[in-house]
Design a protein around this nucleic acid. Structure first.
Ligand SMILES: [Mn+2]
Ligand SMILES: [Mn+2]
Length: 587
DNA sequence: ACCGACGATG
DNA sequence: TTCACACAATCAA
DNA sequence: GATTGTGTGTCTCATCGTCGGTTG
């Protein structure tokens, strides 16, 4: 099943090793990132949280939504905020603790909060105003998930090793045994079940505050512990993320649909089609909603393609503009023998491409289609990068490191892939990325402006970008990069990977690569950050004789990817030294 | 007894 | 809760 | 050669306790 992947988390955390290869041929491995940094941004680390931190954070959120969004809140939501405010400290503590648990049903015996003086007082108070229920009805499935397998086995008398909680008889928990006790009363002999209410309101509040649902209260904690440090950008208090209630409702609605994706996949074509009809309507004034909906529609349609429901997929693709919708549509048309409309679509993409990827597709795919159909189609010639072959002994190292080691004999060579150009771009334009453009910073936990990958990013900052390119022309690049590297070290930036960027490598790159080349690189990246932040060559090589070369390493059987070819094409046009090295293993 | 996944925590 | 890359399988001419 | 799907390394904040399964 291609979609619906199971994300697996690695608990074993391998220390990240940054290998730098010098021309004595020795391989130095450095542990990173530096914990005892002396620079300004990393000065504050490992602070302690106050003992009321979680209530403080919750109160902050409540205050934020009532202050900024009072007019958008429903009567229920307002009442919730008001009631919460009137609670005793103990009840507030208790509610925040309970609401931060992942399930709605909880066992009181499993609650251990030593900082709450008397948690049963808190629960009683919450019960009286309806924030929790002490009397709960629950299904046998819910009951099974509340207790451990050992507990269930012992109380149900099913000691079999093949015990499956999924097929417990619905009445099993309530059926009295010989002594007149039901399994449930035994499970609850020294325990009780409570239900936590109104958690869905907190979800809505999170959306109002963060603008998304993948961030939560841990953002506060991680910041306050100094584990995630954000740039101190100016938050735009004039613009507000949501104007209308229908907007909030639509986003919440979307997130509910997104959760259904996996099960819809399992239900096949009908399930996916049903899910598509379930989606909220877009709103003209909400571009974020458009983006979320279009991305999701593309995902549904892509899965329908896999199930060979091409017509339905095509219909959904044609409802969105977001790439790769037009690419997929053209492929479907070509596949179903509709060469003419596929070609027309390719020409439309060529005329008004929405991004680089789409344009490259139209050029290559259109040319191939036209050739087959013997029609006329114009597309730029493809660049064939200089290639060479290197014979190496197979060892423990990856191909990239093996080649780097080879080049280290005659210079310095680093395996940095996207980290180098991205990192220098991020440092060179740091202040512009975090510039106070209106409506791009809404809360203190953003690592990038909301429009970072949009085409408006460049337009909204045109003046600043022009100035920066001029400064680079005046020879100030090295100074700008170095000062940002020093001042901002450890702060989050969408393009800067601090562990891989060592000052030595930075200064070498800035010294060896001329400013005209940097200007061209930056202009290119600014033209489409999303598509040009990847595909950069594996290695950068600084020969002892001077100069530099960007090298993409290819093991036997591996070939250039689309985005890698794009960069090679650019290097060629800019007359920057580049090549592809094919490795042949010997012995 | 050991492990890996997972939730809770600050 | 990826994301970007390498790699393998498949199909078509 | 083109396309697609799958696997892998790297990246998440780090650590502790529990659960459930496998191994001895
Ligand atoms: Mn690579
Ligand atoms: Mn490579």
């Amino acid at each position: 099943m291609p979609e619906g992947y199971v994300p697996l988390r690695k608990t074993e955390h391998h220390a990240v090793l940054a290998q730098s290869l010098s021309n004595n041929g020795d391989v130095t491995t450095q542990r990173s990132p530096a914990q005892n940094n002396t620079s300004s941004a990393t000065a504050r680390v490992a602070s302690q949280l106050s003992d009321t931190y979680y209530v403080d954070n919750f109160n902050y959120l409540i205050k934020f939504v009532t202050r900024h969004y009072q007019h958008l809140l429903t009567a229920d939501e307002l009442k919730f905020c008001h009631t919460y405010d009137s609670l005793s400290n103990t009840a507030q503590q208790t509610y925040v603790r309970l609401a931060s648990r992942s399930t709605d049903l909880l066992r009181t015996a499993k609650l251990h909060y030593p900082e709450i003086e008397n948690i049963s007082d808190g629960i009683n108070e919450l019960n009286s105003i309806g924030f929790v229920s002490k009397e709960v009805e629950f299904s046998s499935e819910e009951c099974a998930s509340l207790f451990t397998r050992a507990e269930l086995k012992s109380v149900l008398g099913l000691s079999s090793s093949q015990f499956d909680p999924a097929c417990i008889n619905p009445d099993a928990f309530t059926t009295p045994d010989l002594f007149g006790d039901s399994p449930l009363t035994r499970l609850l002999a020294n325990d009780s079940i409570i239900a936590v209410h109104h958690k869905e309101l907190i979800v809505a509040f999170r959306l109002l505050f963060f603008g998304n649902l993948h961030q939560d209260f841990s953002s506060f904690v991680l910041r306050d512990l100094g584990l995630r440090q954000y740039e101190n950008y100016k938050i735009d208090s004039d613009t507000v993320l949501f104007q209308e209630r229908e907007q909030l409702a639509a986003h919440l609605h979307y997130y509910q649909c997104a959760e259904l994706f996996d099960s819809a996949c399992e239900q096949g074509i009908d399930g996916l089609q049903e899910l598509h009809t379930l989606l909220p309507q877009p709103l003209q004034y909400d571009k974020t909603l458009d983006r979320r909906l279009d991305t999701f529609k593309n995902r549904i349609a892509r899965q329908l393609e896999r199930l060979e429901a091409l017509d339905i997929a095509a219909q959904i693709y044609s409802q969105t503009t977001r790439p790769p919708a037009r690419e997929r549509l053209a492929r479907i048309q070509a596949k179903s023998g509709n060469t003419d409309s596929a070609l027309t679509l390719c020409k439309a993409i060529q005329a008004l491409p929405l991004d680089t990827d789409e344009l490259d597709f139209a050029n290559t795919f259109g040319a191939r289609l036209a050739k087959k159909a013997q029609q006329c189609f114009t597309s730029p010639a493809r660049h064939a990068p200089p290639e060479s072959t290197l014979q190496l002994h197979a060892g423990n190292l990856s191909v990239e490191f093996s080649v780097a080691l080879h080049y280290a004999k005659t210079g310095k060579c680093y395996y940095l892939e996207n980290s180098l150009l991205n990192g220098i771009f991020g440092l060179a334009f740091w202040d512009i990325i975090f510039a106070p453009v209106s409506g791009v910073f809404f809360h203190p936990f953003q690592h990038q402006p909301t429009d970072f990958y949009e085409s408006e990013f460049t337009i909204s900052r045109e003046q600043m970008i022009r100035q920066r390119l001029q400064q680079i022309d005046n020879g100030q690049l090295q100074q700008i990069v170095n000062s940002h590297h020093y001042q901002k070290k450890g702060l989050r930036n969408p393009l800067v990977n601090w562990q891989w960027l060592k000052p030595h490598t930075l200064s070498l790159a800035l010294k060896r690569i001329p400013k005209q080349d940097w200007q061209a690189i930056f202009k290119l990246m600014l033209s489409d950050i999303r598509n040009y932040r990847s595909g950069q060559p594996d290695l950068i090589y600084f020969p002892d004789d001077g100069g530099y070369e960007l090298i993409e390493v290819k093991a036997p059987g591996d070939r250039l990817q689309k985005n890698q070819l794009r960069w090679m094409h650019f290097f060629n046009e800019q007359r920057m030294s580049h090549s592809v090295v094919h490795v042949e293993w010997i012995e």
